[in-house]
């Protein structure tokens, strides 16, 4: 029973990790660059939600009504006003800029909210459990998290596969120069992709804040989890994110069951192991160029 419980909890934890990875996978898939402030942006969204609940009296989940559009605009603005300026110089400027941004967000949050750990209060749903069998109770909110993840993945997949804009995203990812010949403005697509990623991050941040407490310096660990999800699942693949999240969650939970100190380490080792045997991940989708 303990083994089953560990496995199920690992899968549920993986749902959260897959959410971390989803936004990063989207931007990598289209722009081929990693936002090193990804984890800090998740934490920023959590704090913005906290602010909304304090000012407007919303519950954290209600705050998404405000948060999703606001985060979309921040992401779109970041890409169009800052990151697009460096496109022609390769990946290094974007990496360094987002690395700098990571420090700006962390210390900005520290100055604005102090280093105290905080928590988003959604109410009873946080602690409710679902008892599957005697001695086997799973948290309701982690199950909901997995549900949100699945909805987001299917929605994203439908958007990419069925809409003109989604096809333009994929065309730009394949070959931005030829996409330009189809009338697709790559800079705008990049802006929209980052906006979309930030909108997903808004959802992620709120869920993270309800599930656990948080502090301004939690971002880097979130970035690493998101990155590991992508390495395990395969770069630029939406379904790979699901697999990557679940495997990372399982690895950590199993490691943690052996000894609490192995929790994160087991996840890192699983990632490095995948990197050693299958460098393009389990479900590679991105077509490698040049």
């Amino acid at each position: 029973m303990i083994a089953i419980s560990t496995a199920l909890n690992g899968i549920l934890l993986g749902g959260l990790y897959a959410l971390y990875g989803l936004g990063l996978s989207l931007t990598f898939g289209i722009m081929r660059t990693v936002n090193l402030a990804h984890g800090d942006v998740i934490v920023l969204a959590t704090y913005l939600s906290l602010l909304t609940t304090q000012i407007l009296g919303f519950t954290p989940l209600m705050s998404l009504v405000v948060l999703v559009p606001v985060m979309f605009c921040i992401g779109y603005g970041l890409q169009r006003l800052v990151l697009n300026r460096t496109l022609k110089d390769g990946m290094m400027p974007a990496v360094i800029i987002t690395f700098g941004l990571s420090f700006v967000i962390q210390n900005g949050l520290l100055l604005g909210f102090s280093a105290d750990r905080q928590v988003l209060r959604q109410g009873a749903v946080e602690t409710m459990g679902v008892t599957l069998a005697p001695g086997l109770t799973l948290g309701l909110f982690p199950i909901l998290t997995l549900g949100v993840l699945l909805v987001l993945i299917f929605a994203l997949q439908a958007f990419m596969g069925r809409t003109l804009l989604g096809r333009a995203f994929r065309a730009t990812s394949d070959d931005p120069n030829t996409a330009e010949l189809m009338g697709i403005d790559g800079r705008k697509i990049y802006g929209l992709a980052m906006g979309l990623a930030f909108a997903i991050i808004a959802v992620t941040g709120v869920i993270m804040g309800i599930r656990s407490n948080f502090s301004p310096f939690d971002g880097p660990a979130r970035l690493i989890f998101a990155f590991e999800v992508i390495i395990i699942g395969g770069m630029g693949s939406i379904y790979g994110v699901l697999a990557g999240g679940l495997i990372l969650g399982l690895a950590q939970t199993i490691g943690g069951a052996i000894s609490p100190t192995y929790f994160q380490l087991a996840g890192h080792l699983a990632t490095l192991g995948i990197l050693a045997v299958r460098p393009s991940g389990l479900f590679p989708e991105t077509i490698e160029k040049g």
Binding site: R167, A171, M182, E285
Partner: peptide
């Protein structure tokens, strides 16, 4: 374009549809 340059991850139909982007 020279060399055709289809979008490799798109189907034939999607390649055509993307042409209607303008």
């Amino acid at each position: 374009p020279e060399g055709r340059r289809l979008f490799p991850s798109l189907t034939v139909e999607d390649n055509l549809i993307i042409g209607s982007y303008p």
